[in-house]
Design a protein around this nucleic acid. Structure first.
Lengths: 166, 166
DNA sequence: CAAAGGTACTACGGTTCCGTAGTATCCCCG
DNA sequence: CGGGGATACTACGGAACCGTAGTACCTTTG
Protein backbone atom coordinates (compact mmCIF):
# COMPACT_ATOMS: atom_id res chain seq x y z
CA UNK A 1 0.00 0.00 0.00
CA UNK A 2 2.76 2.28 -0.20
CA UNK A 3 2.31 3.06 -3.81
CA UNK A 4 0.74 6.44 -4.22
CA UNK A 5 -0.10 8.43 -1.19
CA UNK A 6 -1.69 11.47 -2.71
CA UNK A 7 -2.37 14.43 -0.55
CA UNK A 8 -2.82 12.27 2.49
CA UNK A 9 -1.23 14.55 4.97
CA UNK A 10 -1.81 12.22 7.86
CA UNK A 11 -0.06 9.34 6.20
CA UNK A 12 2.91 11.17 4.87
CA UNK A 13 6.51 11.21 5.92
CA UNK A 14 6.25 14.99 5.96
CA UNK A 15 3.54 14.73 8.54
CA UNK A 16 5.70 12.44 10.65
CA UNK A 17 8.37 15.11 10.72
CA UNK A 18 5.81 17.60 11.90
CA UNK A 19 4.49 15.25 14.54
CA UNK A 20 7.98 14.49 15.82
CA UNK A 21 8.70 18.16 16.22
CA UNK A 22 5.49 18.60 18.15
CA UNK A 23 6.26 15.68 20.40
CA UNK A 24 9.70 16.98 21.26
CA UNK A 25 8.24 20.41 21.85
CA UNK A 26 5.77 18.95 24.30
CA UNK A 27 8.46 17.00 26.06
CA UNK A 28 10.53 20.10 26.69
CA UNK A 29 7.54 22.28 27.56
CA UNK A 30 6.34 19.74 30.08
CA UNK A 31 9.69 19.16 31.68
CA UNK A 32 10.66 22.79 31.94
CA UNK A 33 7.23 24.05 32.88
CA UNK A 34 8.08 24.73 36.51
CA UNK A 35 11.57 26.01 35.80
CA UNK A 36 12.84 29.53 35.40
CA UNK A 37 13.08 29.40 31.60
CA UNK A 38 10.93 28.19 28.75
CA UNK A 39 12.57 25.88 26.21
CA UNK A 40 12.96 28.77 23.78
CA UNK A 41 14.53 30.93 26.45
CA UNK A 42 16.80 28.12 27.47
CA UNK A 43 18.03 27.86 23.91
CA UNK A 44 18.86 31.55 23.89
CA UNK A 45 20.68 31.42 27.20
CA UNK A 46 22.57 28.34 26.08
CA UNK A 47 23.74 30.02 22.90
CA UNK A 48 24.94 33.06 24.81
CA UNK A 49 26.64 30.83 27.32
CA UNK A 50 28.27 28.53 24.80
CA UNK A 51 29.47 31.13 22.37
CA UNK A 52 30.90 33.19 25.20
CA UNK A 53 30.12 36.83 24.57
CA UNK A 54 29.29 36.81 20.87
CA UNK A 55 27.52 39.41 18.78
CA UNK A 56 23.74 39.37 18.20
CA UNK A 57 24.25 38.36 14.59
CA UNK A 58 26.38 35.37 15.54
CA UNK A 59 23.94 34.34 18.22
CA UNK A 60 20.94 34.61 15.94
CA UNK A 61 22.69 32.48 13.33
CA UNK A 62 23.61 29.92 15.96
CA UNK A 63 20.00 29.69 17.04
CA UNK A 64 18.63 29.53 13.54
CA UNK A 65 16.48 32.59 14.01
CA UNK A 66 16.28 35.92 12.27
CA UNK A 67 18.22 38.73 13.83
CA UNK A 68 15.05 40.65 14.64
CA UNK A 69 13.58 37.65 16.40
CA UNK A 70 16.70 37.27 18.46
CA UNK A 71 16.63 40.93 19.36
CA UNK A 72 13.10 40.52 20.69
CA UNK A 73 14.34 37.74 22.92
CA UNK A 74 17.42 39.62 23.95
CA UNK A 75 15.33 42.57 25.01
CA UNK A 76 13.48 40.31 27.43
CA UNK A 77 16.62 38.66 28.71
CA UNK A 78 18.21 42.00 29.40
CA UNK A 79 15.01 43.19 30.99
CA UNK A 80 15.29 40.35 33.49
CA UNK A 81 18.81 41.43 34.25
CA UNK A 82 20.14 38.15 32.87
CA UNK A 83 22.42 39.53 30.19
CA UNK A 84 24.44 42.64 29.54
CA UNK A 85 26.32 44.18 26.65
CA UNK A 86 30.05 44.44 26.31
CA UNK A 87 31.51 46.95 23.92
CA UNK A 88 33.08 45.42 20.86
CA UNK A 89 36.80 46.17 20.87
CA UNK A 90 37.07 47.29 17.26
CA UNK A 91 33.59 47.51 15.70
CA UNK A 92 31.42 50.21 17.15
CA UNK A 93 28.34 49.08 15.28
CA UNK A 94 28.30 45.90 17.27
CA UNK A 95 28.71 44.59 20.79
CA UNK A 96 28.98 41.32 22.63
CA UNK A 97 26.31 39.71 24.76
CA UNK A 98 27.11 37.94 28.01
CA UNK A 99 25.09 36.38 30.80
CA UNK A 100 25.09 38.02 34.21
CA UNK A 101 25.50 35.97 37.38
CA UNK A 102 21.72 35.82 37.69
CA UNK A 103 21.49 34.74 34.06
CA UNK A 104 23.98 31.95 34.58
CA UNK A 105 22.05 30.79 37.65
CA UNK A 106 18.80 30.63 35.69
CA UNK A 107 20.53 28.80 32.88
CA UNK A 108 22.00 26.27 35.30
CA UNK A 109 18.66 25.60 36.87
CA UNK A 110 16.93 25.24 33.52
CA UNK A 111 19.72 23.00 32.35
CA UNK A 112 18.95 20.49 35.07
CA UNK A 113 15.46 20.13 33.73
CA UNK A 114 16.65 19.99 30.17
CA UNK A 115 19.07 17.24 31.03
CA UNK A 116 16.33 15.35 32.81
CA UNK A 117 14.16 15.49 29.71
CA UNK A 118 17.00 14.55 27.46
CA UNK A 119 17.95 11.62 29.62
CA UNK A 120 14.40 10.30 29.79
CA UNK A 121 14.08 10.72 26.05
CA UNK A 122 17.43 9.25 25.17
CA UNK A 123 17.04 6.23 27.42
CA UNK A 124 13.88 5.28 25.61
CA UNK A 125 15.49 5.03 22.22
CA UNK A 126 15.85 1.32 21.50
CA UNK A 127 18.85 1.80 19.24
CA UNK A 128 20.40 4.55 21.29
CA UNK A 129 20.88 8.23 20.68
CA UNK A 130 23.64 7.98 18.09
CA UNK A 131 21.53 5.80 15.83
CA UNK A 132 18.58 8.15 16.15
CA UNK A 133 20.70 11.14 15.30
CA UNK A 134 22.07 9.41 12.27
CA UNK A 135 18.58 8.46 11.09
CA UNK A 136 17.41 12.03 11.48
CA UNK A 137 20.38 13.34 9.61
CA UNK A 138 19.78 11.03 6.70
CA UNK A 139 16.26 12.37 6.41
CA UNK A 140 17.43 15.94 6.75
CA UNK A 141 20.02 15.52 4.06
CA UNK A 142 17.37 14.14 1.73
CA UNK A 143 15.20 17.19 2.37
CA UNK A 144 18.09 19.56 1.79
CA UNK A 145 19.15 17.82 -1.38
CA UNK A 146 15.60 17.88 -2.68
CA UNK A 147 15.34 21.57 -1.88
CA UNK A 148 18.46 22.39 -3.80
CA UNK A 149 17.41 20.21 -6.66
CA UNK A 150 13.96 21.72 -7.03
CA UNK A 151 15.15 25.24 -6.45
CA UNK A 152 17.59 25.12 -9.31
CA UNK A 153 15.35 23.35 -11.80
CA UNK A 154 11.78 24.39 -11.02
CA UNK A 155 9.87 22.64 -13.82
CA UNK A 156 10.06 25.07 -16.61
CA UNK A 157 6.80 26.72 -15.76
CA UNK A 158 6.31 30.43 -16.38
CA UNK A 159 7.44 32.36 -13.38
CA UNK A 160 4.90 34.46 -11.57
CA UNK A 161 6.61 37.48 -10.08
CA UNK A 162 4.68 37.88 -6.88
CA UNK A 163 3.58 34.54 -5.57
CA UNK A 164 2.81 34.30 -1.96
CA UNK A 165 6.02 33.20 -0.38
CA UNK A 166 5.92 33.26 3.36
CA UNK B 1 30.54 8.04 23.07
CA UNK B 2 30.61 11.44 24.33
CA UNK B 3 28.78 10.45 27.42
CA UNK B 4 27.59 13.75 28.79
CA UNK B 5 26.67 16.42 26.34
CA UNK B 6 25.61 19.17 28.68
CA UNK B 7 23.73 22.11 27.37
CA UNK B 8 25.30 21.74 23.96
CA UNK B 9 22.29 22.59 21.94
CA UNK B 10 24.08 22.26 18.68
CA UNK B 11 25.24 18.76 19.36
CA UNK B 12 22.04 17.39 20.75
CA UNK B 13 19.50 15.02 19.32
CA UNK B 14 16.91 17.62 20.24
CA UNK B 15 18.63 20.08 17.98
CA UNK B 16 18.63 17.57 15.15
CA UNK B 17 14.88 17.33 15.44
CA UNK B 18 14.64 21.08 15.20
CA UNK B 19 16.96 21.19 12.22
CA UNK B 20 15.03 18.47 10.43
CA UNK B 21 11.81 20.35 10.88
CA UNK B 22 13.42 23.47 9.46
CA UNK B 23 14.80 21.59 6.48
CA UNK B 24 11.43 20.11 5.61
CA UNK B 25 9.82 23.50 6.05
CA UNK B 26 12.26 24.98 3.59
CA UNK B 27 11.67 22.19 1.12
CA UNK B 28 7.94 22.81 1.07
CA UNK B 29 8.26 26.58 1.08
CA UNK B 30 10.63 26.47 -1.85
CA UNK B 31 8.59 24.04 -3.90
CA UNK B 32 5.25 25.68 -3.32
CA UNK B 33 6.51 29.23 -3.55
CA UNK B 34 5.00 29.94 -6.94
CA UNK B 35 1.82 28.01 -6.32
CA UNK B 36 -1.58 29.22 -5.17
CA UNK B 37 -1.19 28.01 -1.58
CA UNK B 38 1.49 28.15 1.08
CA UNK B 39 2.41 24.87 2.76
CA UNK B 40 0.33 25.81 5.79
CA UNK B 41 -2.63 26.65 3.64
CA UNK B 42 -2.22 23.46 1.67
CA UNK B 43 -2.39 21.52 4.91
CA UNK B 44 -5.66 23.23 5.79
CA UNK B 45 -7.19 22.62 2.38
CA UNK B 46 -6.06 19.01 2.47
CA UNK B 47 -7.64 18.41 5.82
CA UNK B 48 -10.93 19.90 4.65
CA UNK B 49 -10.75 17.87 1.49
CA UNK B 50 -9.80 14.60 3.12
CA UNK B 51 -12.21 14.73 6.01
CA UNK B 52 -15.02 15.67 3.68
CA UNK B 53 -17.11 18.36 5.31
CA UNK B 54 -16.09 18.03 8.93
CA UNK B 55 -16.58 20.44 11.81
CA UNK B 56 -13.97 23.06 12.74
CA UNK B 57 -13.09 21.16 15.90
CA UNK B 58 -12.45 17.95 13.97
CA UNK B 59 -10.40 19.78 11.41
CA UNK B 60 -8.30 21.59 13.99
CA UNK B 61 -7.59 18.30 15.75
CA UNK B 62 -6.64 16.69 12.47
CA UNK B 63 -4.20 19.47 11.76
CA UNK B 64 -2.74 19.52 15.23
CA UNK B 65 -3.61 23.14 15.79
CA UNK B 66 -5.71 24.95 18.34
CA UNK B 67 -9.27 25.65 17.37
CA UNK B 68 -8.66 29.39 17.43
CA UNK B 69 -5.71 29.03 15.11
CA UNK B 70 -7.76 27.01 12.70
CA UNK B 71 -10.54 29.58 12.81
CA UNK B 72 -8.05 32.25 11.82
CA UNK B 73 -7.09 30.18 8.81
CA UNK B 74 -10.64 29.34 7.96
CA UNK B 75 -11.56 33.00 7.94
CA UNK B 76 -8.98 33.57 5.22
CA UNK B 77 -10.01 30.52 3.24
CA UNK B 78 -13.61 31.61 3.28
CA UNK B 79 -12.54 35.12 2.40
CA UNK B 80 -10.95 33.75 -0.76
CA UNK B 81 -14.18 32.01 -1.57
CA UNK B 82 -12.49 28.64 -1.25
CA UNK B 83 -14.69 27.14 1.44
CA UNK B 84 -18.23 27.44 2.64
CA UNK B 85 -20.26 26.28 5.62
CA UNK B 86 -22.89 23.61 5.60
CA UNK B 87 -25.40 23.47 8.38
CA UNK B 88 -24.92 20.59 10.75
CA UNK B 89 -27.93 18.30 10.52
CA UNK B 90 -28.47 17.86 14.25
CA UNK B 91 -26.14 20.18 16.19
CA UNK B 92 -26.92 23.83 15.78
CA UNK B 93 -23.80 24.95 17.59
CA UNK B 94 -21.67 23.53 14.85
CA UNK B 95 -21.41 23.29 11.09
CA UNK B 96 -19.42 21.51 8.45
CA UNK B 97 -16.74 23.03 6.27
CA UNK B 98 -16.37 22.13 2.61
CA UNK B 99 -14.24 23.37 -0.26
CA UNK B 100 -15.87 25.24 -3.10
CA UNK B 101 -15.02 24.44 -6.71
CA UNK B 102 -12.42 27.21 -6.65
CA UNK B 103 -11.01 25.80 -3.42
CA UNK B 104 -10.70 22.35 -4.91
CA UNK B 105 -8.94 23.78 -7.94
CA UNK B 106 -6.41 25.60 -5.76
CA UNK B 107 -5.88 22.48 -3.74
CA UNK B 108 -5.31 20.40 -6.83
CA UNK B 109 -2.76 22.82 -8.18
CA UNK B 110 -0.92 23.05 -4.87
CA UNK B 111 -1.03 19.29 -4.61
CA UNK B 112 1.00 18.93 -7.78
CA UNK B 113 3.77 20.92 -6.23
CA UNK B 114 3.50 19.09 -2.97
CA UNK B 115 3.79 15.78 -4.74
CA UNK B 116 6.79 17.01 -6.63
CA UNK B 117 8.52 17.96 -3.39
CA UNK B 118 7.55 14.72 -1.76
CA UNK B 119 8.81 12.70 -4.67
CA UNK B 120 12.14 14.49 -4.80
CA UNK B 121 12.49 14.08 -1.07
CA UNK B 122 11.42 10.49 -0.93
CA UNK B 123 13.61 9.40 -3.80
CA UNK B 124 16.65 10.65 -1.97
CA UNK B 125 16.15 8.48 1.06
CA UNK B 126 18.70 5.69 0.80
CA UNK B 127 16.58 3.25 2.78
CA UNK B 128 13.28 4.38 1.33
CA UNK B 129 10.36 6.22 2.77
CA UNK B 130 8.97 3.43 4.90
CA UNK B 131 12.23 3.02 6.76
CA UNK B 132 12.49 6.74 7.36
CA UNK B 133 8.95 6.90 8.67
CA UNK B 134 9.62 4.05 11.02
CA UNK B 135 12.80 5.69 12.30
CA UNK B 136 10.96 8.92 12.94
CA UNK B 137 8.20 7.13 14.72
CA UNK B 138 10.59 5.38 17.01
CA UNK B 139 12.02 8.72 18.02
CA UNK B 140 8.59 10.23 18.42
CA UNK B 141 7.43 7.40 20.62
CA UNK B 142 10.47 7.88 22.83
CA UNK B 143 9.63 11.56 23.20
CA UNK B 144 6.01 10.81 24.01
CA UNK B 145 6.91 8.14 26.51
CA UNK B 146 9.39 10.46 28.18
CA UNK B 147 6.77 13.18 28.33
CA UNK B 148 4.25 10.94 30.02
CA UNK B 149 6.86 9.62 32.36
CA UNK B 150 8.08 13.02 33.47
CA UNK B 151 4.60 14.50 33.60
CA UNK B 152 3.26 11.91 35.99
CA UNK B 153 6.23 11.97 38.32
CA UNK B 154 7.68 15.46 37.94
CA UNK B 155 10.07 15.89 40.80
CA UNK B 156 7.61 16.13 43.59
CA UNK B 157 6.90 19.79 43.00
CA UNK B 158 3.40 21.17 43.29
CA UNK B 159 1.58 22.03 40.12
CA UNK B 160 1.56 25.68 39.25
CA UNK B 161 -1.50 26.64 37.25
CA UNK B 162 0.01 29.55 35.40
CA UNK B 163 3.67 29.00 34.90
CA UNK B 164 5.25 30.75 32.00
CA UNK B 165 4.30 28.54 29.16
CA UNK B 166 4.28 30.55 26.07
C1' DC C 1 41.32 60.79 1.97
C1' DA C 2 36.63 60.47 -0.27
C1' DA C 3 33.09 57.88 -2.42
C1' DA C 4 30.60 53.54 -2.87
C1' DG C 5 29.09 49.51 -1.15
C1' DG C 6 28.60 46.22 2.53
C1' DT C 7 27.55 45.00 7.44
C1' DA C 8 25.40 45.47 12.26
C1' DC C 9 21.93 46.80 14.69
C1' DT C 10 17.31 49.39 15.46
C1' DA C 11 12.47 50.81 14.61
C1' DC C 12 8.25 49.50 13.17
C1' DG C 13 4.42 47.08 11.47
C1' DG C 14 2.19 42.85 10.00
C1' DT C 15 1.13 37.95 10.35
C1' DT C 16 0.54 33.82 12.84
C1' DC C 17 -0.54 31.37 16.69
C1' DC C 18 -2.80 30.75 20.90
C1' DG C 19 -4.83 31.54 25.83
C1' DT C 20 -8.90 33.28 28.07
C1' DA C 21 -13.46 34.36 28.50
C1' DG C 22 -18.12 34.50 26.76
C1' DT C 23 -22.39 32.73 24.40
C1' DA C 24 -25.26 29.26 22.46
C1' DT C 25 -26.52 24.66 22.36
C1' DC C 26 -26.50 19.90 23.59
C1' DC C 27 -26.61 15.95 26.75
C1' DC C 28 -27.23 13.58 31.08
C1' DC C 29 -29.58 12.84 35.18
C1' DG C 30 -33.21 13.06 38.31
C1' DC D 1 -39.18 18.25 31.52
C1' DG D 2 -35.69 21.23 34.18
C1' DG D 3 -31.06 22.06 35.99
C1' DG D 4 -26.03 21.29 35.75
C1' DG D 5 -22.24 20.36 33.26
C1' DA D 6 -20.01 19.57 28.87
C1' DT D 7 -19.22 20.96 24.15
C1' DA D 8 -18.79 24.11 19.86
C1' DC D 9 -17.74 28.12 18.26
C1' DT D 10 -16.74 33.37 18.68
C1' DA D 11 -14.52 37.61 20.43
C1' DC D 12 -10.59 39.60 22.00
C1' DG D 13 -5.99 40.55 23.25
C1' DG D 14 -1.25 39.26 23.72
C1' DA D 15 3.18 36.95 22.51
C1' DA D 16 6.34 35.29 19.08
C1' DC D 17 8.32 35.69 14.73
C1' DC D 18 9.80 38.01 10.83
C1' DG D 19 10.09 41.38 6.62
C1' DT D 20 11.28 46.01 5.43
C1' DA D 21 13.42 50.16 5.86
C1' DG D 22 16.50 53.22 8.24
C1' DT D 23 20.88 54.69 10.64
C1' DA D 24 25.56 54.24 11.94
C1' DC D 25 29.76 52.37 10.96
C1' DC D 26 33.19 49.71 8.52
C1' DT D 27 35.81 48.38 4.31
C1' DT D 28 37.24 48.68 -0.21
C1' DT D 29 38.85 51.21 -4.02
C1' DG D 30 41.10 54.67 -6.57
Amino acid sequence: MSGSNEGELGTSLLFDVFALDQAVGRLLATTMRDGPLTPAEYAVYSAIFELGAASPTKLAARLGMRLTTFMDQLRDVEGRGHAHRIAHPTDRRSYRVALTAAGRAAHREANERFERAFEAFSSRLPEGEAAAREALRVVRRAAEAATNDLASAPVASPRLPAGRAG
